[in-house]
Amino acid sequence: MKIIVLMKQTFDTEAKITLDGQGKINRQGVNLIINPYDEFAVEEALRIKEKHGGEVVLVSVGADSVQEALRQALAMGADRAVLINPEMEEVDEFTTATILARAVSGLGYDLILGGWRAIDDGSAQVAGRVAEILDLPVVNQVTKIEIEAGKAVATRDIEGGNEVVEVSLPAVLTAQKGLNEPRYPTMKGIMQAKKKPMEKKNLADLGLSADQAAPKVKVLEYFLPKPRAAGKILEGEVPEAVAALVKALREEAKVI
């Protein structure tokens, strides 16, 4: 069974987001990690491989720094990795999905896994778009996967409960929290990871032109939420305090 995992490198969940002089997100000195939802996908791929045999191939779009995240997933036990550097200033979901779909179609697959969303931009589009381009069924936000002959039975979160669906393979399944608890790489795994193949490609290697993958969405502006002001405690007797509160709500907060 050949399992592809779509993987993204993101900021650490605890990273403090700041903007640089140009109003872009400042990447200096930020700790980078595997997108946690993608990490569930990696773990699930490894478990499926351990049970049914096969190969786990990681595919990612991004700069050279993504190699660190890929190396970590290789250390967890994945077999090989492909990194496509689009060499573009900005990419959107269309760009990423177009590149991933092209790369994946060249690799061959029985199952494609990914996180249901990335924790940075949170758009939750890429896996679905890849499925669309490859004309594959997609099941989102799965919390359990069972592989049977030529099909997958997946449990997914829905409003107020769960849904169990059956889907023929190949298919794209996206991981939700609760699917599994990812393993930590061991030192042996880390040392083996260095010997595992990591292919680096660009758009031309995939036969894509910059135009074909050019983003369709442009970010106009990034801004940080306003820091919350300290609360105010009104003192004194209740009738006076209530009067002061109503006054503050009307004149300062302007909500009544």
Binding site: E68, R71, Q72, A75, Y184, P185, M187, I190, M191, A193, K194
Partner: peptide, 14 residues
């Protein structure tokens, strides 16, 4: 080494 950096990250997280 790269391996030691990754070991540190891993053990730190664990």
């Amino acid at each position: 080494t790269e391996e030691q950096e990754l070991l540190r990250e891993t053990v730190r997280r664990l």
